[in-house]
Amino acid sequence: MKATDNLYNYCLRLGDDALILGHRLSELCSKAPFIEEDLALTNISLDMIGRAQAILKYAAEVGGKNDTEDDLAYRRAEINYYNHLLVEQPNGDFAHTIARQLFLSAFEFYLYGEMEKCHDKTLAAIASKTLKEVRYHLEHASDWTIRLGDGTPESHHRMQNAINELWMYTGELFEMDEVEMTLMRDGIAVDLIPVKTQWYNRIKHVLAEATLVMPEDSYMQTGSRKGVHTEHLGHILAEMQYLQRAYPDAIW
């Protein structure tokens, strides 16, 4: 294994989260509860796809195989995708969309807050740009969690349900394998132990204000660090990669 393999892999993990959740949010265009919210969700989606482009471009550079960011997005199979299981989960109702966003944005807020200080200059620069965007995503998701949790009995029920159902995908956010441990020692990857504490406290705080109950710790799903996903990712990629796969010689 080359020394750059770890960094390449780490970039894919970061880039794939942004790409897949950006894609999921883009599915919601013209489907939001009202037009202003449609624009808001699209803005978040655009932030994330833009970030994916920057990170995958860097991954391609690190990978050194003359790939472009589009090659990485459109020509990789599921098993070579490393996004967290959380972000590939379907949009569900608006409460699921918001719960998924809350969980991920809170994670990214602390993750990129640390990554700003990392020794890799490119990642540090991407992190400081991302942090501004993610702060807004987190605020947007937190506000909606509170409105829905403390809204009508129906919205309260739906929001609690979404939190409960997606909870089992949150444990994976804080897993650290050999790739990340090695990079952490080099001052590149973020130590996720303190991030987990910060994340947990933030979510607890938001849910309390939303009059929602923090789920009890239960079995956490895992697999994405090794490219093992839920069934959903295959469908996302089948759709996303369709033109590039069907017309491999075409330039778009």
Binding site: I35, E36, L39, A40, N43, D143, R147
Partner: peptide, 20 residues
Amino acid sequence: SIHASDVKMAMQNARDTYTR
């Protein structure tokens, strides 16, 4: 103009609509 139910939402919607 924009539509929103509270001032925080109004601020966010104004930002998302008019400062893109």
